[in-house]
Simulated scan of single mutants.
Amino acid sequence: MDRNDGGKDWLEAELADTLDEDYELELSEPALSLEIRKVYRKAHPDTIDRLTYFRELIRLQSELIKLQDWVAHHKKKIVVIFEGRDSAGKGGVIKRITQRLNPRIARVVALPAPTERETSQWYFQRYVPHLPAGGEIVLFDRSWYNRAGVERVMGFATPDQVEEFFRDVPEFERMLLRSGIMLVKYWFSITDEEQQMRFLMRIHDPMKQWKLSPMDLQSRVRWEDYTKAKEEMFARTNVPEAPWYIVEGNDKKRARLNCIDHLLNQVPYEPVPHEEIALPERVFNPEYERKVLPPELYVPQKY
């Protein structure tokens, strides 16, 4: 078989599986208001078509696997930070990045609210244990920038603590870079109207209501406060060594593709040598007889 034909067959098979998953997700929203869905589609008339989107996504994910192999082979350390307003699409792009990667190499960190003990520690202390060792990629779904955003806006941090954070974070990140960590910071940006629409869709979808927290709802009330906090965060933490990159997130599909493509371009990865894999012969013992297990051990075959 021609090698190119084999690659094409693989791509078509992957596309079929991915499209099936996409249809499954759509069918899992029976309670989603049809009117809200119509409004959402009307607001995104120029979104990329499904087939083109999945072809590009799978192509980019194949490059992510090459990146993963390079990181593991050369014992590199990568940290990627995902920040942005609630419902801006951070989780969606993180899911697509990690979808085909080895979870022992690429892992997601999404820390809960700090405990009483953690609030008494050095602010960055609870993030340090999650930083990568050699050969690892860590994706922070929200990060130490909580202090510049939600903690500041909601009053969980004092003005003095916020000011101390702004003084410390550039040097903290320079320390990470000096230690050999590659740091990439993304901010997902959406409009006021887009966030409102996504919140309404979550409210009307029982499978997504868990994504809405009291903090999320407060973020609607305090939209302007979050905007001011974001602007100062950019002004004070967009240092040359660790710049921010803004992902326009109103169109989810384009945001995912653009972010993954940009991330791949930030890392000078190259193909790494691989040993050829050969499936060994199974050892066959003619005297061994496989035992029949009790039927109650088996999961019932309902489908």
Rank of each mutant, 00 (worst) to 15 (best):
V162M: 09
D168S: 06
S143P: 03
Y23Q: 13
D49M: 07
T47E: 08
W244E: 07
L176T: 10
A72K: 04
R3S: 09
I65M: 12
E193C: 07
E248H: 06
G249A: 09
I203A: 12
D69V: 00
I36W: 01
E29K: 11
L264K: 08
R37W: 02
D17T: 14
P114V: 12
P243L: 07
E116A: 11
P112T: 06
V247R: 04
Q121V: 02
Q125S: 15
I203V: 14
Y127E: 10
E56G: 07
V267W: 01
T115S: 14
E136S: 01
A43G: 03
L263K: 03
L139Q: 01
A148Q: 05
A133K: 06
V239H: 13
I58M: 01
E276L: 13
G6P: 00
A106N: 02
E276H: 10
W210H: 14
R220K: 14
Q196N: 11
S62N: 10
Q218Y: 01
A110Q: 15
L64Q: 02
V128D: 03
Y298K: 10
K291C: 08
V93I: 15
K90G: 00
R152I: 11
S189D: 11
A157D: 02
A13R: 10
P273M: 10
V39F: 05
V128L: 08
G92V: 04
F165H: 00
V272L: 10
K8H: 06
W223E: 10
V109R: 05
P240G: 14
F284P: 01
V267G: 05
E171A: 14
H44P: 00
M215Y: 01
S143R: 00
A242K: 06
S219L: 02
I97A: 09
E241L: 10
R222M: 13
D46G: 03
S28E: 08
L32C: 07
Q218F: 01
P170V: 11
I246Y: 08
V299C: 11
K185N: 07
S189I: 05
M233W: 05
L212A: 14
G91Q: 09
L64F: 02
V239T: 15
T47D: 05
E26N: 07
T191W: 03
H74W: 10
D160A: 15
